[in-house]
Protein backbone atom coordinates (compact mmCIF):
# COMPACT_ATOMS: atom_id res chain seq x y z
CA UNK A 1 0.00 0.00 0.00
CA UNK A 2 3.08 2.18 0.13
CA UNK A 3 2.51 3.50 -3.39
CA UNK A 4 -0.98 4.68 -2.48
CA UNK A 5 0.21 7.60 -0.40
CA UNK A 6 0.81 10.74 -2.36
CA UNK A 7 3.57 13.27 -2.06
CA UNK A 8 1.69 15.56 0.31
CA UNK A 9 1.03 12.68 2.70
CA UNK A 10 4.69 12.33 3.50
CA UNK A 11 5.76 12.77 7.08
CA UNK A 12 7.58 16.00 7.85
CA UNK A 13 10.46 15.29 10.28
CA UNK A 14 10.12 16.77 13.78
CA UNK A 15 13.39 18.66 13.28
CA UNK A 16 11.99 20.64 10.32
CA UNK A 17 9.11 21.89 12.43
CA UNK A 18 11.39 22.77 15.35
CA UNK A 19 13.68 24.73 13.01
CA UNK A 20 10.69 26.64 11.61
CA UNK A 21 9.57 27.42 15.17
CA UNK A 22 13.05 28.75 16.03
CA UNK A 23 12.92 30.97 12.92
CA UNK A 24 9.44 32.21 13.96
CA UNK A 25 10.70 33.08 17.45
CA UNK A 26 13.70 34.96 16.02
CA UNK A 27 11.36 36.90 13.71
CA UNK A 28 9.14 37.70 16.70
CA UNK A 29 12.16 39.09 18.54
CA UNK A 30 13.13 41.04 15.42
CA UNK A 31 9.69 42.58 14.99
CA UNK A 32 9.61 43.72 18.63
CA UNK A 33 13.11 45.17 18.26
CA UNK A 34 12.07 47.05 15.10
CA UNK A 35 9.05 48.49 16.92
CA UNK A 36 11.15 49.51 19.95
CA UNK A 37 13.56 51.46 17.76
CA UNK A 38 12.29 54.90 16.93
CA UNK A 39 8.98 54.96 15.12
CA UNK A 40 9.15 55.85 11.47
CA UNK A 41 7.40 55.16 8.19
CA UNK A 42 9.84 52.33 7.64
CA UNK A 43 8.98 50.54 10.89
CA UNK A 44 5.42 49.99 9.61
CA UNK A 45 6.80 48.51 6.43
CA UNK A 46 9.42 46.45 8.30
CA UNK A 47 6.86 45.05 10.76
CA UNK A 48 4.45 44.05 8.00
CA UNK A 49 7.31 42.48 6.05
CA UNK A 50 8.35 40.44 9.10
CA UNK A 51 4.70 39.44 9.69
CA UNK A 52 4.50 38.23 6.08
CA UNK A 53 7.72 36.25 6.49
CA UNK A 54 6.24 34.60 9.60
CA UNK A 55 2.95 33.90 7.79
CA UNK A 56 4.94 32.44 4.88
CA UNK A 57 6.84 30.07 7.17
CA UNK A 58 3.59 28.90 8.78
CA UNK A 59 1.96 28.46 5.36
CA UNK A 60 4.79 26.67 3.63
CA UNK A 61 5.94 24.37 6.42
CA UNK A 62 3.29 24.04 9.16
CA UNK A 63 0.45 24.04 6.59
CA UNK A 64 2.48 21.86 4.16
CA UNK A 65 2.01 24.25 1.24
CA UNK A 66 5.58 23.48 0.20
CA UNK A 67 4.57 19.85 -0.41
CA UNK A 68 1.25 20.57 -2.14
CA UNK A 69 0.48 20.49 -5.85
CA UNK A 70 0.64 23.70 -7.88
CA UNK A 71 -3.18 23.79 -8.16
CA UNK A 72 -3.59 24.55 -4.47
CA UNK A 73 -0.76 27.09 -4.54
CA UNK A 74 -2.38 28.80 -7.55
CA UNK A 75 -5.77 28.93 -5.82
CA UNK A 76 -4.30 30.44 -2.67
CA UNK A 77 -2.41 32.93 -4.81
CA UNK A 78 -5.68 33.96 -6.50
CA UNK A 79 -7.37 34.51 -3.13
CA UNK A 80 -4.49 36.68 -1.88
CA UNK A 81 -4.36 38.54 -5.23
CA UNK A 82 -8.12 39.22 -4.99
CA UNK A 83 -7.75 40.58 -1.47
CA UNK A 84 -4.80 42.73 -2.55
CA UNK A 85 -6.78 44.09 -5.50
CA UNK A 86 -9.75 44.92 -3.26
CA UNK A 87 -7.46 46.72 -0.80
CA UNK A 88 -5.88 48.70 -3.66
CA UNK A 89 -9.28 49.65 -5.12
CA UNK A 90 -10.55 50.59 -1.65
CA UNK A 91 -7.58 52.89 -1.09
CA UNK A 92 -7.94 54.41 -4.54
CA UNK A 93 -11.59 55.13 -3.78
CA UNK A 94 -10.83 56.71 -0.39
CA UNK A 95 -7.82 58.75 -1.57
CA UNK A 96 -9.27 60.18 -4.79
CA UNK A 97 -12.79 60.83 -3.62
Amino acid sequence: MQGETEKSDHIVPYGTYVNVWIALMLLLAATIAVAKVEFSKYSVFANLLIASLKAGLVLFFFMHLKYEKWVLKAMLFMVIATLTAVIALFFADVMFR
Binding site: T31, V34, A35, S43, N47, I50, A55, V58, L59, F62
Partner: peptide
Amino acid sequence: TGLYWHFVDIVWIYLFPLFYLIT
Protein backbone atom coordinates in the same frame (compact mmCIF):
# COMPACT_ATOMS: atom_id res chain seq x y z
CA THR B 1 -7.82 20.78 12.43
CA GLY B 2 -4.12 21.59 12.17
CA LEU B 3 -4.72 23.69 9.03
CA TYR B 4 -7.43 25.64 10.86
CA TRP B 5 -5.22 26.20 13.90
CA HIS B 6 -2.33 27.44 11.75
CA PHE B 7 -4.69 29.81 9.93
CA VAL B 8 -5.82 31.26 13.27
CA ASP B 9 -2.13 31.66 14.11
CA ILE B 10 -1.53 33.55 10.84
CA VAL B 11 -4.40 35.96 11.60
CA TRP B 12 -2.75 36.73 14.95
CA ILE B 13 0.64 37.16 13.24
CA TYR B 14 -0.93 40.17 11.44
CA LEU B 15 -3.08 41.42 14.34
CA PHE B 16 -0.04 41.62 16.61
CA PRO B 17 1.93 44.27 14.68
CA LEU B 18 -1.21 46.20 13.73
CA PHE B 19 -2.45 46.68 17.29
CA TYR B 20 0.66 46.38 19.45
CA LEU B 21 3.72 47.31 17.41
CA ILE B 22 2.90 49.95 14.82
CA THR B 23 2.15 52.53 17.45
